[in-house]
Design a protein around this nucleic acid. Structure first.
Lengths: 103, 103
DNA sequence: CCAATACATAAGTACATACTTATATGATTC
DNA sequence: GAATCATATAAGTATGTACTTATGTATTGG
């Protein structure tokens, strides 16, 4: 199940940090490493896991590979969440506000 | 970070199955085991992980411990998701519909 | 082409984790 | 209060996973 892969991908603090960093703006693998105390192969492996989970996308640009957030993964999390609407607390403020804005 | 614990908890297929089962209705640990090919200690340990992640709540009822979905965990996932609204695809239909109904 | 750069893959290792069996705790019934 | 039932915890083990170093592949510039 793809959702399991998504949750597994986000369960690792390092990968979660990479995801957050990409959310602040697309960048290549080298740029991602800046200030992260992580080896090049480790970064590459983490990005592969995030890719398989559809949380990020790659786009080759010459020698560089640019990474960006993949909306598919987020959409899958949203769908997962929607399945449990019966259990949502009365106010999920942040989310509600955001979705009102979407219209 | 609590979100990491939530994702970690849901990353395991067995725990995810337990969560889904509880979403269909609260029940005690023995009932949860029905049709799941899982030992009693394993179930107990999984429930402990789900509890720590705020995905389920326990309520002792005599000899039994009744488990139910904890809305807190879901709310935290919702808040996490809301942080990345910039990357949501134009239509997260399911979620949108659900939240419209909430009003 | 050849060297350099950016990234991916391979293979090995240390630690995390999901399981097991055994035992403890907590609650009910006789 | 002894036996029993429901669940939790302890301790050990096998597998998974996040890292390492070494090497491979793709792209560019000289």
């Amino acid at each position: 199940m793809i959702e399991t892969e998504i949750f597994r991908a986000l369960a690792d603090p390092t990968r979660h940090a990479i995801f957050r960093k990409l959310a602040a703006g697309a960048m290549n693998a080298s740029a991602l490493r800046q200030g992260m105390a992580i080896s090049q192969p480790a970064m590459s492996q983490h990005l592969a896991v995030l890719r398989r989970a559809r949380l990020v996308r790659e786009e080759r640009q010459g020698r560089f590979v640019n990474y960006r957030i993949d909306p598919d993964g987020l959409a899958l999390v949203a769908r997962w969440l929607a399945k449990y609407r019966d259990y949502w607390p009365a106010r999920i403020d942040a989310l509600k506000t955001v979705l009102e804005d979407m219209d």
